[in-house]
């Protein structure tokens, strides 16, 4: 399967990465190189094989459903590029 310019643009959009129009051709080429490499997986007989979920068989631990942490608004906001009045600030989302 070969990725064209339009597919590359769609993937960039899904990944929320701005790619300039004149870069799309090159990007599609890189995708194709990587995907061409991945295509080898089609040679493998995977009939009846379960996809791996956890590499070390273990049961995830459970804990009481209680609050263990919190009350640190200042720390949460300390690294924000734009924080105001105790909130993260972003461009207008709703018209």
């Amino acid at each position: 399967m070969s990725i064209d310019k339009d597919t590359a643009a769609k993937v960039a959009k899904l990944a929320r990465i701005k790619v300039e129009e004149d870069q799309l051709e090159a990007l599609a080429g890189e995708f194709n190189a990587v995907l061409g490499f991945i295509e080898q997986l089609n040679e493998v007989d995977v009939e009846g094989v379960e996809p791996m979920v956890s590499v070390t068989p273990m049961r995830l631990k459970r804990r009481e459903d209680v609050v263990t942490d919190g009350g640190m608004q200042d720390k949460i906001l300390a690294n924000a590029p734009d924080a105001r009045e105790g909130f993260f600030a972003v461009p207008k989302v709703v018209e």
Binding site: I38, L41, N42, V44, V46, V49, E50, P51, M52, V53
Partner: peptide, 14 residues
């Protein structure tokens, strides 16, 4: 086609 197949191959590698 890609992700699930790769995870199956991972099972075989293990």
């Amino acid at each position: 086609a890609y992700y699930n197949r790769a995870r199956k191959v991972r099972t075989l590698i293990k």
